[in-house]
């Protein structure tokens, strides 16, 4: 790797640079390199029903999330897109009065089985929320937080991880001189990229993004979209969006939802060019949105 001009401080971050170790990862040594094509992660949603405070939000949803592709969930607002995304991560549990039946299976582990240890499954899924939500600490600690939790405490390795993932989301050049200033002081577009880097730092296989660009300005959302296209080579990305154009631009697979049900799911070409259901055609042609 060719190094740019290095200030003293950055040299310190570079002292023990070990790209192989980074690629191999700190939290998934039982797997081969993510660059190995034979390694496939696998997520299946199986007859999922979600009822929140008596409202049946998701009705018998079954779908498979393909690896190393961008899957866009589209549909009118209130159709259960975000709920589906949150249920993939078991974040719905944090609310009172939620009933869930059915199953989400990640790499052979059932998320909603009784007594399942959820934290290591959540690690496999990075979450990007609608509004960027940096943690109330410095930029450095935002990224190091997840790593520390999962047992990586070695300062040198942490430095390496922070730099690597900030580079991955294109933030390094912008923030390398103020790594220890509060994350809250960044611009909103930068914050969203920081959140992405924070998620990537714990080496997930999936990235779940809930309208991740809707709060951002056009340029920042373009940056995020480009990042998704780049990250597609290594991660399975699930993106909830209500802008059809965004789905058109980046989706490989599309899931169209309406009133809590999956109306149609398939490759982008299938859905956008040859929609089978009438409802899908209407939605795509803008009869309702």
């Amino acid at each position: 790797m060719k190094l740019p001009f290095l200030s003293k401080k950055i040299k310190w971050y570079m002292a023990d640079w070990n790209e192989t170790e980074l690629k191999k990862g700190f939290f998934r040594p039982d797997q081969k390199f993510r660059t190995d094509n034979a390694m496939r992660s696998n997520m299946v949603v199986d007859h999922l029903n979600v009822t929140i405070q008596g409202n049946h939000i998701l009705k018998d949803v079954s779908v498979e999330i393909p690896d190393r592709k961008i899957t866009c969930i589209i549909g009118p607002s209130g159709c259960g897109k975000s709920t589906l995304l949150k249920s993939l991560n078991r974040l719905l549990d944090a609310n009172e009065d939620v009933k869930i039946t059915g199953q989400v299976i990640v790499d052979g582990e059932e998320l909603y089985a009784p007594g399942v240890e959820i934290t290591h499954i959540r690690r496999k899924m990075g979450l990007l929320s609608q509004r960027p939500c940096p943690l109330p600490m410095s930029i450095y600690d935002n990224i190091a937080y997840g790593c520390r939790i999962h047992g990586l405490r070695n300062r040198k390795k942490l430095n390496m991880v922070v730099r690597y993932y900030l580079q991955a989301v294109g933030l390094w050049e912008e923030v390398k001189d103020r790594l220890h200033s509060p994350a809250a002081r960044m611009s909103i577009g930068q914050q969203q990229r920081l959140c992405l880097a924070r998620g990537l730092a714990v080496e997930p296989q999936f990235i779940l993004a809930d309208e991740a660009t809707s709060a951002l300005d056009p340029i920042s959302s373009k940056t995020i979209e480009d990042l998704f296209l780049k990250l597609r080579e290594e991660y399975a990305i699930v993106l909830v969006t209500h802008t059809l154009r965004q789905a058109l631009r980046i989706a490989d697979y599309v899931i169209f939802m309406y009133m809590g049900e999956i109306v149609e799911a398939g490759t982008a070409e299938q859905i956008f060019k040859h929609p089978q259901k009438e409802l899908t055609q209407k939605y795509l042609s803008g009869v309702f949105s």
Partner: peptide, 13 residues
């Protein structure tokens, strides 16, 4: 913010 708790949980905390 609920999002902040979610952000932390989704890192596996």
């Amino acid at each position: 913010p609920q999002d902040m708790l979610h952000a932390s949980y989704s890192l596996g905390a």
